[in-house]
Write a protein that binds this DNA or RNA. Structure first.
Lengths: 258, 258
DNA sequence: CGGTTGTTTGACGCAGTTCAAGCGGAGTGG
DNA sequence: CCACTCCGCTTGAACTGCGTCAAACAACCG
């Protein structure tokens, strides 16, 4: 994850095998309505797709990008690396996610974006973004919305890591990923391809790998999910949801009882 | 914290004892430059200040506010309440903070904002916000920046709760609050008034009250901070900072060692 | 000065971590 | 087609940071 193994393949060849850029539009339209003009303006922002190898950084921590990035296919994550190699993943990203509008507004990255699987991305130069949002304020508004939704997800994760049991967090994680993937058409019935390892999941949940494995086994044992060879199936949505909000972890938190 | 004890005092009397609304401008200007026109336009958004009693909700979880809120004085927090009375605080807020531009963009609150001490707030009706941001796009841009900075803070907290020891988290917490308060002029040398209880801090850190108390004692014992009767003094800034990034908690996280 | 809210201390328990080792599948080279 | 090697998954056993329980103390306030 430390070495950027960027592979800016020149896609002279036709779109063969290349995922559809329109997944970004599906994502934006899940946040608000777009006119045909706005759709085209957004697609015009996207430059020629590039491939990134699993394990490489798409955006480095501390960098000052001059472009934002849309993820077209594959799985990436926002993460922060600590001394001793400890990693906390702050969000999972997949097709349609814009991985760093932040850099357009905040300039400097306070975390890295890494490819968990092989990824295809499309860059969006900041100056083109500025022009487009000036011409179509609604685009800026929808991107703002996007960052706020992500912010809400951070709050949920924070609350979970802070106050929920490992099992609840796991249940929540699968609910969330499945719903987000469904919104951009990456699911198939009750199943979806979740191309991440248990190691990655443990860094999402703030758990050790060993304990994450045990949580997964418990969720499987409860017949709430199936997860093998990267295929996630939600077996019992209602119960999974219920487990996600259960707080098994005890804590004499200070919230006033009254 | 559950019952809204709003006290919309009619401030017919002069501003006597009322804190200065300009603290909101200091906050915004810490994020970007404002023209005199923009400053005035923003101040015009603010309605007559209201008082909220400690323990009451300024914005309720799940509500659909038609106004955003600027905190003028006092301490508030974003929080989420779980079954069994467990609470996770997602951020501390004080003078100058805009507690819910979210509601302007996202409509529905996914968390509550509660007053930890007596507070004075000023509402900003959404329709006035819309007009002002249409007229002054830079205002919208700066508010977007504000939400993104907050988002970055959420990520830091998440990483801390997920992967750092209790002591590190505590050290980080005091660093962050002090720096943020300094940015709006709420500090006095190395000291600041932090009007929150240890119970509140424990819900920020995702720790139990008892353990939070022990962390505080350790930080005091290390001569990094002093904290009594609501006055926080940073005794050794460099060491406090160093402790904040130390990861004492062990974890066989999956981040690739290589 | 009594009631209420916030802080501190001690003893004990457990959820989750660490250490260590074995297993299976997928590639890769001979 | 087998041998070798990663890499990811699983399991067991011991350990510990932090939570829970319980109780006393301190500070504030009308």
């Amino acid at each position: 994850m430390s070495v950027a193994a960027q592979t800016p393949i020149a896609f002279a060849k036709p779109q063969s095998g290349l995922p559809d850029l329109h997944i970004t539009i599906r994502k934006l339209e899940s946040l608000g309505d777009l006119s045909a003009e706005e759709r085209n303006a957004f697609l015009d922002l996207l430059e020629k797709p590039q491939r990134f190898a699993a394990g490489s950084d798409i955006v480095a921590d501390g960098s000052l990008p001059t472009e934002s990035t849309a993820l077209i296919s594959g799985f990436a994550c926002r993460y922060k690396l600590f001394s001793g190699g400890r990693r906390q993943i702050m969000s999972l990203q997949f097709g349609g996610d814009i991985t760093d509008i932040h850099s357009y507004v905040l300039k400097k990255m306070d975390h890295a974006v890494g490819a968990l699987t092989d990824c295809v991305i499309a860059r969006m130069p900041h100056d083109k973004v500025r022009k487009a949002t000036e011409r179509f304020p609604n685009l800026a508004y929808i991107m703002w919305r996007d960052t706020l939704v992500e912010s809400a997800i951070f709050r949920l994760w924070l609350a979970g890591v802070g106050r929920k049991s490992a099992l609840s967090r796991g249940a929540h994680f699968f609910c969330e990923q499945f719903m987000r993937m469904e919104a951009v058409g990456l699911t198939n019935g009750n199943s979806a391809t979740l191309g991440v390892t248990q190691t990655d999941i443990s860094d999402c949940l703030g758990l050790s790998l060993v304990h994450t494995n045990r949580v997964l086994q418990e969720l499987r044992g409860m017949r709430l999910i199936e997860l093998k060879s990267k295929t996630l199936t939600i077996t019992d949505w209602a119960e999974l949801n219920a487990s996600a909000s259960l707080i098994l972890r005890t804590s004499n938190s200070g919230a006033r009882k009254k």
